[in-house]
Amino acid sequence: MAWLCTGNTNKELVDNLLDAKIISSNRVASAMHAVDRAHFSKHHPYEDSPQYIGYGATISAPHMHGYALENLQDYLKPGMNALDVGSGSGYLTACMAEMVGENGHVVGIDHIPELVADSQRALDQHYSAWTQSGRIKVVAGDGRKGYSDDAPYDCIHVGAASSNKPTDLINQLKSPGRLFVPVGSASQNIIVYDKDRDGNVKERQIMGVMYVPLTDPQKQRSDFL
């Protein structure tokens, strides 16, 4: 069902994700309704498939964003602090910002400065109140190391596949906190890492996926030349 959720409008796309039971939370649906994917993806924004956004990067398929928000919703409550690694277009970063509300804070980090600049322009144009208040910000940097300036985080989302267990990111989680990340190389799976109040970490596998690798900017650019 996941790949059958394409719509002609943002509302139709999100409603199709609801009908397919990919999302079921009212908070997730409201966030995805509030943030128009067309603000961040110029080509077929309401198609339920990954879309190329330049510099060797894609904006993930809407159903994957739905799965991510569903799994992170308990850690995206009003006032919470979140990190989006490999933020790319800035779309999911904005959805997360919608969910944490005016007293929350979300950082998007990407290692391609041009993508950071593009996402900043989209956010400034369509969600300027959020960028001006500090509710959301995007920065250029190596997301594999997280973003220690604003850590710790209630949750972290990673939009590219880590080759192994992302210890640096787990270390930047609050206790409790949650990390949603694709892990693997030839074979990848979404793994959710949960840190409890005592700092103990458990992991569980959600589904098999195929993401672009979480790598350095030079390799990302060269792989798509």
Rank of each mutant, 00 (worst) to 15 (best):
A82K: 00
V209A: 09
L115C: 11
L4Q: 15
S175I: 08
T215N: 13
M80W: 02
I59S: 08
T9W: 12
G90S: 03
G7W: 12
V181T: 15
M1W: 09
I136H: 02
S175E: 13
K145D: 15
N26K: 11
G146R: 04
A186R: 15
D223G: 07
R144N: 12
Y67V: 15
G88F: 00
G90F: 02
A117Y: 09
V181Q: 08
P166A: 13
P182D: 07
L214S: 02
L214M: 15
S30C: 04
G66A: 07
G108P: 08
S89H: 03
I59H: 05
Y211S: 10
T6L: 09
S119R: 00
K21H: 12
N164R: 14
A2W: 11
G90C: 04
K21W: 08
S60A: 13
G7S: 13
S25A: 09
G146T: 07
S128T: 08
A34C: 08
V158Q: 06
D198N: 13
D223K: 01
D149L: 11
E98V: 02
E70D: 09
L76P: 07
Y91G: 05
P78S: 08
M210K: 15
Y193C: 10
N103Q: 13
Y67N: 08
V158Y: 03
G56I: 01
Y193V: 11
S222V: 04
A160W: 04
D48H: 06
M64T: 10
D198A: 12
I136P: 01
S87F: 01
Q205S: 14
A31L: 07
P217M: 01
S222D: 14
A122D: 11
D168E: 15
A31P: 03
G108L: 09
K219S: 14
G104W: 12
V107A: 04
R197T: 14
H63Q: 01
E12Q: 15
I156G: 01
M96V: 00
V14L: 11
A161C: 03
D48A: 06
I136G: 06
Y52L: 05
N103G: 11
V100Q: 06
A61D: 00
E203H: 04
K137I: 09
P166E: 14
N164H: 13
A20N: 12
S148V: 14
A34R: 03
H44L: 09
R204P: 01
G134A: 02
D110T: 03
D74T: 11
V106R: 08
L92Q: 06
G66V: 01
F224Y: 12
A2D: 14
T131M: 12
G101K: 03
K174G: 12
V212P: 00
I156W: 00
K77E: 09
N200G: 05
D15C: 05
Q132A: 14
N71D: 15
Q220S: 12
D19H: 06
K21P: 04
H65S: 06
R144C: 11
Q132V: 08
K165N: 13
L225A: 10
